[in-house]
Simulated assay, not measured.
Amino acid sequence: MLEVEQKFLLADKTALLDQLAQLGATQETDQEQEDLYFTHPVRNFAETDEAFRIRRIGSENRVTYKGPKRNTVSKIRKEIELAFESGQSAFEQLTEMLELLGFHPLRSVRKRRTPFTCQHQQRAFEITIDEVEGLGLFAEIELLAEESELQEADNAIIELAAYLGMTHPIRTSYLGMLIEKETQSGSD
């Protein structure tokens, strides 16, 4: 499966919540997430446009690989995510193991995520509102799709985003935005 998503800077959270309610979206439980991104020992993920991270959601842990973004309006990329043992100790042990294998922690991204599920035009969307530490408020619209369904999924996200009044997607990841912000403030 491929992840198809668009991300937007969110100017008015209340307006989006009202629109989601009108669509009949179901709000899931808020999540505190921490993503620890790693650099590869021999491959430059910034050049290959890949990402490798460990994510903590409460006490739940996941390891995720994200492949290069395809050149489309939406962000389309291969994503492989696997759960591993819960708890802080397991998170720290996997971090240590990766470091011993030559991976290096790059940066953490912390956010409060409010997920919603929504049926729209016979598709099941995941819509999230993210309060990202150091960046602000964002909304994401996401679908999972097979290769043969990519164009339809991309079009469906573009249509739903426009319906919700979101017209300027951001292709840069939260990690990329934070690094860019730190680079800019370091040069000031």
Rank of each mutant, 00 (worst) to 15 (best):
L2W: 11
E3P: 02
V4S: 05
V4I: 12
K7Q: 06
F8S: 01
F8H: 01
F8P: 03
L10M: 04
L10W: 03
A11V: 07
D12Y: 06
D12V: 03
K13T: 01
A15F: 11
L16S: 00
L16P: 01
D18I: 08
Q19Y: 09
L20S: 03
A21K: 14
L23V: 03
Q27G: 03
Q27K: 12
T29I: 08
E32R: 12
Q33R: 11
E34L: 14
E34Q: 15
E34D: 05
L36W: 10
T39F: 01
H40F: 07
P41L: 07
P41K: 02
N44C: 11
F45I: 07
A46I: 03
E47I: 02
E47L: 05
T48W: 00
T48P: 05
D49A: 03
E50S: 05
E50K: 04
A51R: 10
F52P: 04
R56A: 15
I57P: 02
G58Y: 12
S59R: 15
E60C: 13
V63F: 07
N71R: 09
N71L: 08
T72F: 10
I76W: 00
I80R: 12
E85I: 11
G87P: 05
S89A: 15
A90P: 08
F91E: 05
E96F: 11
L98P: 06
E99A: 06
E99N: 10
L100Q: 15
L101H: 06
L101M: 13
H104Q: 15
H104I: 07
P105H: 02
L106A: 11
R107L: 15
V109G: 00
T117V: 10
C118R: 00
Q121G: 02
Q122S: 13
R123W: 05
A124M: 09
T128C: 11
E131P: 02
V132S: 00
G136C: 01
G136Y: 07
L137R: 09
F138Q: 00
E140T: 07
E140F: 10
I141C: 07
L143V: 04
E147P: 00
E149Y: 01
L150I: 13
Q151R: 10
E152M: 04
D154N: 14
I158L: 15
I158P: 02
E159Q: 14
A161P: 05
A161E: 08
A162G: 12
L164F: 13
G165S: 07
M166T: 04
M166R: 09
T167G: 09
P169W: 07
I170H: 04
R171C: 13
T172Y: 12
Y174I: 00
L175M: 08
M177C: 11
L178Y: 05
K181P: 00
K181H: 11
E182W: 02
Q184C: 06
Q184R: 14
